[in-house]
Write a protein that binds this DNA or RNA. Structure first.
Length: 240
DNA sequence: AAACAGACCAACCGCCATGCG
DNA sequence: ACGCATGGCGGTTGGTCTGTT
């Protein structure tokens, strides 16, 4: 007899299924969770589930909020600059995604993890020709998704009321000083990071720019697309 | 046009650390 | 000191979409 059948026979499988919902979140669930967090703040995730009337466990609620519903999330495609930071920090820290994410405000560890896995883990295995094709395909896809996202964000902004805006601003103010890419700090520390391995061990300085940087840097990173791990480490250890 | 392969990403799972009674 | 609850993290899975054959 399977576990499922036993559960059905004795009832507990059914009870369990009723207790916690799984799978994709509905718009209504998102609304309930967002509303609850807006009123009571983050934390106590198990209570959130109960008090907000959600049939989701605390873990699921936290994950949904952190990875998808948080108002300070940046969303949209990773910029070349962010990409360089991800590569750089991954070379330094390995798969410590949450640590890497802290240096990229508005990005989640899950997002970075997914990005790295799809863009870099397999990238090294591809031949140059396939790599070009894949990149072109990815860019095309990203462009399309970006358009959709912009439309969605515009709609969301229109729906934001004043209190939402205030909350967002206070969140930004809270996170701003912790951001590791403050130009004045960079000056004070005299950091010159023309090569990834020259970043300070604990103090990180990553000017994010506006995502429109192109030209030389893009050319450099285009070349890096095809580096495998070993080549990448060699490149990192190059004197500038 | 349909089948297939690969890319992408949301969500789940298991483990570990921490805080609290 | 111990056990429990909770939150955080990294790895993995599964569904969907898109491009290729």
């Amino acid at each position: 007899m399977s576990l499922a059948m036993m559960g059905e026979q004795f009832g507990w499988g059914v009870i369990e299924e009723e207790a916690w919902r799984k799978g994709p979140w509905t718009a209504e669930e998102d609304r309930l969770l967002t509303e609850y967090v807006r009123l009571h703040g983050e934390g106590r995730w198990n209570s959130v589930a109960r008090l907000a009337g959600l049939k989701r466990n605390g873990k699921s609620c936290r994950l949904r909020w952190v990875n998808y519903l948080r108002p300070d999330l940046k969303r949209g495609q990773i910029t070349p600059h962010e990409e360089s930071i991800i590569l750089e920090l991954h070379a330094r820290w390995g798969n410590r995604w949450s640590t890497i994410a802290r240096s990229l405000p508005g990005r989640t560890d899950n997002e970075i993890k997914n990005y790295w896995r799809t863009h870099f883990k397999k990238k090294a295995k591809l031949s140059p020709d396939n790599s070009d094709q894949a990149k072109a395909r990815t860019l095309k896809r990203q462009h399309f998704q970006q358009q959709l996202l912009q439309q969605k964000q515009q709609q969301q902004y229109l729906q934001l009321n004043e209190s939402d805006m205030k909350r967002m601003m206070s969140l930004l103010e809270e996170t701003e000083p912790k951001a590791p890419f403050m130009p004045q700090l960079r000056q004070e520390m005299g950091a010159a990071t023309s090569c990834p391995n020259m970043v300070e061990e604990q103090s990180l300085f990553y000017p994010m720019g506006n995502g429109n940087e192109t030209s030389n840097e893009d050319v450099v990173w285009d070349g890096l697309w095809n580096l495998d791990d070993y080549q990448w480490k060699l490149w990192c250890s190059k004197p500038s």
